[in-house]
Each structure stands twice: as C-alpha cells, then as structure tokens.
C-alpha cells in the first residue's frame, strides 16, 4: 500500500515541478507582455498602415535602408507573418534578400516589441528567464539584441543579394 502511495507521489512530483514553472511564467511574463502588446498594437492602429507605406517606398531606394529600416518597420508594424508583404515595395531582384532580412528580424524584435511575434516569444523569453533568475535586468540584453539584429539583417541582405545575383547570372 505504502509503496503504491510512494509511486503516486513520485508521479505527481514529476508534474508539480512543471506546474511551478507554469505559474511563474503566467504571473511573471503574461501580464507585462499583454499590457505592452496592447499599447504597441493601439499605437500602430492609430498611426495606420498607410502612413508607413510612404516611408517604406522611400526606404527601398538605398541598399542600406532596404535591409535595415524597411524590414524593421515591416516587422514592427505588420508583425510576423504579414511583414513579408512589404516585399511588394522591393524590386524583383532584391526580393529574396528582403525576405531574408525581414524574417531574421522577427526574433531580435521581441526583446523590445513582443507584439511583433507573439507566437514565437520563447526564443528570447526562454533565455531571458535565466537572466531574470540571476537578478539581472533585461533592458541591456534587449537593446543589444535589437542592435545586433539590425546589423545582422543588413549583412544577411547584402550577402543574399550577391548570392542571388550570382545564381541568376549563371542561369
């Protein structure tokens, strides 16, 4: 009898550890994320997609802005996965590179703007949870993640452009 009880207790412990993690996440992460997402979502609705379109058309003209400002705006304003529709502002030969830049930004953006990719928060949040546990602040990590993200998408845009150009010439 006691042996069965011990097994049952051990079995419950297996899930008790999980439930503690779940409580910590639901109370620690969700309230802040919900309020931030609501605030940014409202702001985006107030500004409106139309006004962003003008900036987007301008940003496609130069290589540097095409793989920095354009994807960053697209991801923040349209979110994953609709951000890729900004590819329509880009010349045909640059479309693969634009997609590469935009999709590579859907995680670096989540540190500061979690609304932009609410479905895939835990790439950042998972690692960030460890930082919080150590009692360190997240701001520094989030800002650096964002900045490195912008540099990386610029490089990715340029490299993919070159590879695509090379492949289409060959063809």
């Amino acid at each position: 009898m006691e042996a069965i009880a011990a097994v049952a207790n051990g079995f419950m412990d297996l899930f008790r550890a999980g439930s503690e993690t779940f409580i910590a996440w639901v109370t620690g992460i969700i309230p802040l994320v919900v309020i931030m997402m609501t605030a940014v979502n409202s702001l985006i609705k107030l500004i409106g997609e139309d006004r962003v379109n003008g900036v987007a058309e301008f940003a496609t003209k130069y290589t540097v802005t095409r793989y920095t400002i354009l994807p960053v705006l697209a991801v923040i304003f349209l979110c994953n996965p609709m951000c890729y529709t900004f590819g329509r502002f880009v010349e045909e030969k640059n479309k693969p590179a634009f997609y590469d830049a935009a999709v590579s930004f859907v995680h670096p953006v989540t540190g500061l703007f979690p609304h932009a990719n609410g479905g895939e928060l835990f790439v950042y949040m998972g690692i960030a949870a460890g930082i919080t546990q150590l009692g360190l602040s997240l701001g520094d990590l989030a800002v650096r993640y964002f900045i490195v993200g912008v540099i990386v998408i610029l490089i990715r845009g340029i490299v993919t452009d070159k590879i695509y150009a090379h492949m289409s010439n060959k063809k």
Binding site: V123, Y124, G126, I127, G130, L134, V152
Partner: peptide
C-alpha cells in the same frame, strides 16, 4: 529554437552558462 532557448535559459539561471553568453546564444 524556443525549446532550446528555454533549456539554455534554465542553465543560465543555474549559473552553468555565464549570462553574457545569452546574446551570442540567441543568434
């Protein structure tokens, strides 16, 4: 990526991975 991120976060929290490695690990 999300599951691996969470696992790494746990290790950072336990002190097995130095916190500054969080940034390169994300990429």
């Amino acid at each position: 990526a999300q599951v691996v991120g969470t696992l790494l976060g746990v290790q950072i929290g336990l002190g097995n991975i130095p916190p500054q490695y969080a940034l390169p690990a994300l990429f």
